[in-house]
């Protein structure tokens, strides 16, 4: 029995690696699509709010500092959701390419995990693309604090943020149909970003208490607040402890629900 279990584990690991590799290979073949998809939104926001508006004088020179953690968090979350959700819904509903993977002799949860892993890797790449862009356009206005301990915490938060984005992507990918992908941007990603404490800290929302409570449903709020607590502790921010708890809860809820929906789609009913 143990031997069979070991073979099963070995097979699952091999299948998981192959599935991740397959998705990355297909994505890499269209690398410019990836670069545009990941970099364009943060680039435009950085250019407008971090470079042009402060120069015109419409926002203060402090603003880039306020916005930087938010842009990093947003890039990670949006890239991860996008990287998981869109290929998932396309594979399931249009090309039905995923059927071959679902017929692999492994638990169908492995297929879901592989999809999420690709989302996580893409989320990291998304974060990495935004860093140099930010430094180039807002470098002069940034006043970042990063200690050694902060660096370690930063990696933990980025890892959690990318997992959260992949779980959210898994859930969204099992909910939306390919015909609804166009509506996903205005209907889901835009509210997620604009009410995700990207440009301001959640604490400052006390002026609109109802909105301040409602946005607590948005996982991006916790990601951005955690990044603020580490990168710009001098500015108002949610406590790091609470924001990390927030990210963890979002991972658990979205992951559980997403996995359940995925298995239902995979095995039918």
């Amino acid at each position: 029995m143990t031997e069979q279990h070991n073979t099963q584990t070995k097979n699952s690991w091999g299948a998981f690696k192959a599935m991740v590799k397959r998705d990355l290979l297909v994505q890499l073949r269209d690398k410019w699509e990836f670069v545009f998809r990941v970099a364009m939104l943060p680039f435009m926001l950085i250019l407008l709010y971090g470079y042009i508006l402060p120069r015109i004088g419409l926002v203060s020179n402090e603003f880039p500092n306020q916005m930087f953690p938010g842009i990093v968090g947003m890039s990670i979350l949006v890239t991860g959701i996008h990287g998981t959700a869109i290929p998932l819904t396309m594979d399931f509903n249009v090309s039905r390419e995923i059927e071959d993977r679902l017929m692999a002799p492994v638990n169908v949860g492995v297929v879901a995990l592989a999809k999420m892993c690709v989302g996580i890797i893409e989320a990291w790449i998304g974060g990495l693309i935004v860093l140099p862009l930010s430094l180039i356009f807002m470098g002069n206005s940034l006043d970042l604090t990063l200690t050694l301990q902060g660096g370690g915490l930063l990696l933990v938060v980025i890892l959690l943020a990318s997992i959260s984005s992949a779980t959210l992507g898994l859930l969204v990918g099992t909910i939306i149909k390919p015909s609804q992908v166009a509506a996903m941007f205005p209907g889901f990603l835009i509210p997620l970003v604009f009410l995700g404490s990207v440009f301001f800290s959640w604490n400052t929302l006390h002026v609109t208490p109802i909105i301040q409570v409602l946005v607590l449903l948005n996982p991006l709020v916790y990601v951005n607040e955690a990044l603020r607590a580490i990168l710009t502790p001098q500015l108002p921010h949610m406590s790091l402890f609470i924001s990390i708890i927030g990210i963890l809860i979002s991972i658990l809820i979205m992951g559980y629900w997403g996995r359940k929906r995925f298995i239902k789609m995979a095995v039918g009913n």
Partner: peptide, 29 residues
């Protein structure tokens, strides 16, 4: 082994890759 009625080949891959990746999903080296 299952051959579905519809074309569910992996369009992002070449013919050869369709076979090699399938083999790896089945745990072959």
């Amino acid at each position: 082994g299952v051959v579905a009625q519809h074309n569910n080949l992996d369009k992002g891959l070449t013919a050869r890759e369709n076979l090699t990746y399938h083999a790896k999903y089945f745990g072959l080296d």
